[in-house]
Structures are given as C-alpha cells and as structure tokens.
Design a protein around this nucleic acid. Structure first.
Lengths: 205, 205
DNA sequence: CGTAAATTTGACCATTCGGTTAAACTATTT
DNA sequence: AAATAGTTTAACCGAATGGTCAAATTTACG
C-alpha cells in the first residue's frame, strides 16, 4: 500500500468546498464550481469524496465544529466571568463579521436535516455544554452573578451578537440607507451595547 | 377583453409557491413540486407567472411585506410604549413560532440578491422606519424612557425574539436534548425574559 | 528501470429541471 | 350556434447537473 501522495489536493478541495457550500448552501452549490475553485477536475471531487452528500457532510462537520468550540471552550477558563463575557462578545462579533455567512449556513442546513444528522454531528465534534453550565453555576454559587437561567443567558448573548450580523443585508439598508461604514460603526458600538445589557442582567443587586 | 375566470388558480399557485419557496429556498424549490402542491399542471405555472424568477419575486414581496408591516405598524399607535413593546414581543414570538422558516427565508434570499432588489422590494412594500423613530423620540422627549439609540433598541428586540426561534433546531438539541415541549416552555418564559431585558434597558433611572 | 498503486483527466451517461409549444377545452359574447 | 378570448394539458426540448468509467499520467518502491 502506498502513502498518500497529495494531501494537498484534499486540502484544496475542502477549502474550495467550504467557501462554495457556505456561500451558496447545499442545494445552491455546484460540484463543477467547487472543482473550478479548487483548480481540479470534477472527477477528482468524486475520487476523494464519493458524492456531493459526503463532501457536504465533511464540510459541515468541519465548519460547525470550529464555530461551536469557539463558543464552548471560552467558558472552560477559571477567569472572571465578566471578563470572559466581555472577551467573548468582542471576539465573537468580530469572528462572525469576518465570516458572516457561516451562522446562516449552519442554521439553514440544520433546518433541512433530520435530528439524527445533527445529533451525530454534535456527538462527533464532541462539544459539551456542561462545562458552560458548571461555569455559570459556580459563579452563581460564589455570588458573583445573580441566579439567572444559564440557558436564557447564553441565548441572549448569542442572539444579540449573531442576529445583527446575519440580518445585516436588510438592516443596513433600512436603518442606514446601505451605508457600509455606518453599519460597521453600529456593530462596533454594539459590543458596548451587548456588554451593558448582559452585565446589567447578571450583576448582583 | 374577457374577465378573469379563475383568480382561484392564481391564489392556489401563490399559496403553494409560498410554502415551497419558504421551506426549500429559491434554489431548492422545484417548479414541479409547486405545481403538484397547487394541484395543477407545470405549464400553468408558466402561464400565470412566466418564470421561476417572477414567481419567486412575487412570493418574496408578499412574504416580506407581511412580516415587515407587522413590525413597523405597531409603533404607529399612540399607546404606552411599555405596553406596545410587551404586546410586540408577545405577538412576534408567537408569529415566528408559527412560521419559523420565514425569517430565515427572508434573510437568506436577501443575502443572495443585489442591493437593488432589496431596495426595490422595500420601496414597493412601502414600509417606513421613520414612524418607529418618531415614536421612540417622542417617548424620549416625554421622559418616558431613557435616551437610548432607537436603532440599537429595535435590533435588540428583534434579535432576542427571532434568533431563539430560527436557531431552534440546534439549540433545542443542545440545551434540551431535543425535547420539543421543554423548548416550547423555554420560548414562553422567553417572553418574560425579553420583556425584562428591554424594560430594564429603557426605563428611566 | 520496471511495475504496481495512487492520482488525474476527458469523454460520456442518466436524470432533473426550467421552460416552450401546439393542441384541447371552457366560458363568454354576439 | 359560431366565433372569440381565456384556461389547461400533454408532449417535448435543451441545458445543467451529479455521477461513472476507462484510459492516461504520476509517484513510490523493489
């Protein structure tokens, strides 16, 4: 049995597939377009990933895993919760701003799949929400924050960070007459805004 | 010139197209599927709406207009702002819960279109954000609420209401082990949660 | 080098899909 | 009833698309 000669090609395919799938969605993506972007023949796609379905699954798992871990891992630390949240909001808004299509991509495709697919992906990527719950509970026990519902809290943070970016194409037009710079400023201000909201809601009386 | 005999068929097509487009997206939707759902021949689709593009445009405008007006019109009233917001949150969460695919549909398709398309739709549907701005400004002037940024405010409300529902398929699994009832309770509680957040942020000191 | 395995290509296939066309059918007007 | 305009259908078309296959090329190794 020979060694794998070009893990390079596989990389290039994945990179191209990621870009196309994320931008166009699964049904909108074309195998030919992915091949072109990877600079290879369409047959090669099927040589490495037997079908569009398989290729998509690989890409989805990769993208989802990366994003999910960026959320969960933060709360692993033993840092001050207010610092963690501030840092999270700052990093996450920037991250999504740089990859504005990814949240939509994830939500979108999960909507089209059965639960088993999602469960499988979550299991395989090994994300674990419990570290977050423990982190919050510890801080409640220590009296650092109010006894808030950790589930509502994480959804509040994610909502306030993600929604303004995924809805940007409409909101930028309606609120800012499609002025890109103005909306970028809006998003920068938003970091303070979200911070203030979350802090206000969790800080002890 | 003859009368239109069956505005019935046109209705049926629109209804079917709406359901399919919203669920499958523009590229995922099939003209044949729409025809089947409307109980007619595929050629009839092209008789009434010349192309998929035209049919989609009609559906999109219809759906977008309905949802946008539900947001804007509320703030037209001369009611107490706290009542308006409370009612809005309650209604809107229920509305989206009943039509969970619509926000994603709108955001999704707007992402794929050029600005001109969106501007056109907004112009044609005649939504006007100024009534909202005036409503907020009036309440600030009257000292009923703090001098908050109306843009941040509306985005906060929409984020907190919409995101938990569009991300439901993932979040329900991660937070509630895919227990539908549990997540429905979560969303009911959420009305209180969002209300409390918004009220806390705008009420005068 | 020679050969066998791994990689890459081009030609090709079956199916799907949006769209067209001509003919059939229905209702309305005269 | 005949003519006419509006409505519906079945058959068909060309392009696009996911996928296959056998041949060609490259690479690793004895």
């Amino acid at each position: 049995m020979r060694e794998k000669l070009s893990e390079n090609t596989e990389e290039k395919i994945l990179e191209a597939a990621k870009e196309i799938f994320v931008r166009e969605g699964k049904s909108g993506a074309r195998m030919q377009e992915i091949a072109d972007k990877a600079g290879i023949n369409k047959s090669l796609l099927h040589y490495y990933y037997r079908s569009k379905e398989k290729l998509f699954y690989t890409v989805f798992k990769f993208v989802f895993s990366k994003f999910a871990h960026k959320i969960i891992n933060l709360f692993d630390a033993d840092k001050d919760i207010f610092e963690v949240i501030e840092q999270f909001i700052d990093n996450y808004i920037d991250l999504i701003r740089k990859n504005p299509f990814i949240p939509m991509f994830i939500i979108n495709e999960i909507n089209r799949k059965e639960t088993s697919f999602v469960t499988e992906v979550i299991r395989e990527t090994g994300i674990n929400i419990d570290t977050y719950f423990e982190f919050i509970q510890r801080n409640i026990d220590l009296g650092k924050i109010k006894a808030v519902d950790p589930k509502q809290l994480i959804i509040n943070i994610l909502s306030l960070c993600i929604f303004p970016i995924i809805s940007r194409p409409i909101v930028q037009i309606i609120l800012y007459d499609d002025n890109k710079n103005a909306y970028d400023k809006f998003l920068d201000q938003r970091k303070k805004e979200v911070n203030e909201i979350i802090f206000t809601m969790i800080k002890p009386n």
